[in-house]
């Protein structure tokens, strides 16, 4: 069975058709990333999957359960998922360890509180009041609260917004570690390098529909697209698009007798492909 299965999902707010027929299939054990500009229907889609919003049409199954069902079954379902929201700024008069401890009591099979605190790197701050944490520490606490119930599926919304590069790397390692322990993850992000570093597959959503689903390396024919070879010829910078960059470089090398001045070989970045897909072509 698929972990998440979405067919023909639609949602409107008044006259605005936020989601106009989204289909998605996400497998067990993968990190799946949903990419898209603001207003593309990304948040609406995820919030429907998380059970925060109802849908207008289509079918949705998350862990074999319809998220908009309420009642006891819904509790059992929430017991199996973890949600890390985009912007929570609740700054409580509770310590880190008190907060995590309390949340662990909501679940039938919580992870060990100490282990979780350690794994998100908050060991030194465990006795600090939540209101006194820095932004990055706050985010780590969010993660801790999202994973304390040992979820089978974790929703991760814009996890590293506002992080410095070092903190982002550390965070990515944490997420990869979760996946290797068997947690499936649905990641929404603005950062393409983040999707590239973490995701097994990505889906690009634009104007309420899925434009493409692929691995980050293959998205938009990226793996097979032409490479650009660029070098310096006297005062001039020259470039050539080619399917066979190696032979171009070999020929250049012969011409320059060895070293080619300022040689650069590039393929379109995930960002180039993505911008093209969502209709922002930046030449």
């Amino acid at each position: 069975m698929k972990l998440i299965e979405v067919k023909g999902l639609q949602k409107s707010y008044g006259d605005v058709h936020a989601v106009r027929g989204v289909d998605l299939e996400i497998d067990q054990g993968e990190i799946f990333s949903l990419l898209g500009p603001n207003g593309a229907g990304k948040t609406t889609t995820v919030e429907i999957l998380e059970g925060f919003r109802t849908r207008d049409a289509g079918s949705v199954s998350v862990l074999g359960f319809d998220p908009q069902t309420r009642g006891r079954e819904s509790r059992m379902w929430r017991n199996r998922i973890g949600i890390i929201l985009q912007s929570s700024s609740d700054a409580d008069d509770l310590t880190v360890v008190e907060t995590i401890n309390h949340f662990s009591g909501y679940y039938s099979n919580p992870r060990n509180v100490d282990e979780v605190i350690y794994s998100v790197g908050l060991k030194e701050k465990e006795s600090a009041l939540v209101r006194n944490l820095s932004g990055g520490q706050r985010r780590r606490l969010d993660v801790a609260l999202g994973i304390i119930g040992s979820p089978e599926l974790l929703f991760l919304d814009e996890p590293t917004t506002g992080f410095d590069p070092e903190a982002r790397r550390a965070f990515w390692a944490l997420i990869q570690n979760l996946r290797s322990n068997g947690t499936s993850i649905l990641l929404t992000t603005h950062y393409l390098d983040e999707a590239e570093a973490l995701a097994d597959r990505v889906a690009v959503i634009n104007k309420g529909v899925i434009v493409e689903v692929s691995t980050p390396a293959d998205l938009g024919g990226r793996a097979t697209s032409q490479a650009k070879v660029q070098w310096r010829d006297g005062a001039e910078t020259k470039s050539e698009k080619t399917d066979n960059p190696t032979s171009v470089v070999t020929a250049l090398s012969a011409r320059f007798n060895g070293e080619v001045p300022e040689l650069v070989v590039t393929r379109p970045s995930l960002e180039d492909i993505y911008l093209e897909m969502i209709g922002v072509v930046d030449e």
């Binding site: 059992m76 929430r78 017991n79 998922i81 949600i83 929201l85 929570s88 700024s89 679940y107």
Partner: peptide, 17 residues
């Protein structure tokens, strides 16, 4: 206030009834 800062939404995402 709790709703504004996202505390309620977070609770809603847990199995707490």
């Amino acid at each position: 206030m709790e709703r504004d800062v996202g505390a309620l939404k977070r609770l809603r995402g847990t199995p707490m009834p």
